[in-house]
Amino acid sequence: MATAAAAPDLEPASSFLRRRWLSGQLFPYALITPSVAVIAGVLAFPLGMLVWLSLQHYGLRELIAHQGEWVGLGNYQAILADPLFRQVIFRSLAFTFTCVALTILLSTLIALLLLKVRRAVSVVVMSALVFVWATPVIVTVDIWQWMFDYEFGVINYLLTQLHLGNFIHHNWFDNPVQGLGVLVLVVVWGAIPFVTITVFAGLLQVPGELLDAAEVDGAGPWQRFRFVTAPMLKPIFLIVTCLSTIWDFGVFNQIYVLLNQRPSADYYTIAIYSYRESFGVSQYGLGATIAVLMVLVLIVVTLFYVRETVRQAEIA
């Protein structure tokens, strides 16, 4: 559209457009128009509204009246001065880093393992991954909550039966460090299928001849992975890291459900914090502010990955 507007206006617009169309200059814009229209049509107003809300005092009364009170950057000042917010950001970052690192590491190991096992076993593992991926998150978190239950949880029973200690009436959530550990486990478990299947499929595309040649040259398994496989999988690792970071930073359901919809402040991650401010204490302005800050933090954190990812895409 920008191209069309800048064009010299010497010939009838229709024939001009047609020429452009045929030469392919407008064609790509036509191709992306529907998706831009849908994404912008649905999300532009809500996103703008989110930013707008973050600049207002907006409680339930304002919501009912459809009228907020402008406070400029007041919400941002309040949130940035809140020590809880700093804690929450730090916790979210640490949580995300742990989850992403573990997810990528374990998924890569499982994907490599899939190359080595016999076919029947790989079908079994693949099916397991598919089942995990296909089960709705709101269901799996219920199951996990119940498995880690204090009295009736199968995990406590199992660990005790395996003589790993006395876990009868062990409470996994009274100590936040341990509780967050359990949450990492639940999140990573849910993230492994997608990443593993993606990495595995990528591994299948590494030419066997290349690995053979490397082995002939005396490269061990680690070196073959490090110098042959990993570089070829770089684009996959980039996009997977990028997406995992985005998803894990926004983690909500796992924490919300495992802690009975009432997580204490020790368990607040940024998404929980934003939701609490909005729907818990009806401070929609503050909730929106936290959400905006969350996106900003995420942009900073993923800047490198997004740039690399898009660059890789542009090369292609």
Binding site: D149, E151, N171
Partner: peptide
């Protein structure tokens, strides 16, 4: 009480 000190009352009837 040997109930979950961090739990809520939702399960108490089943228990």
């Amino acid at each position: 009480s040997r109930a979950d000190k961090t739990g809520d009352e939702a399960k108490q009837d089943a228990a």
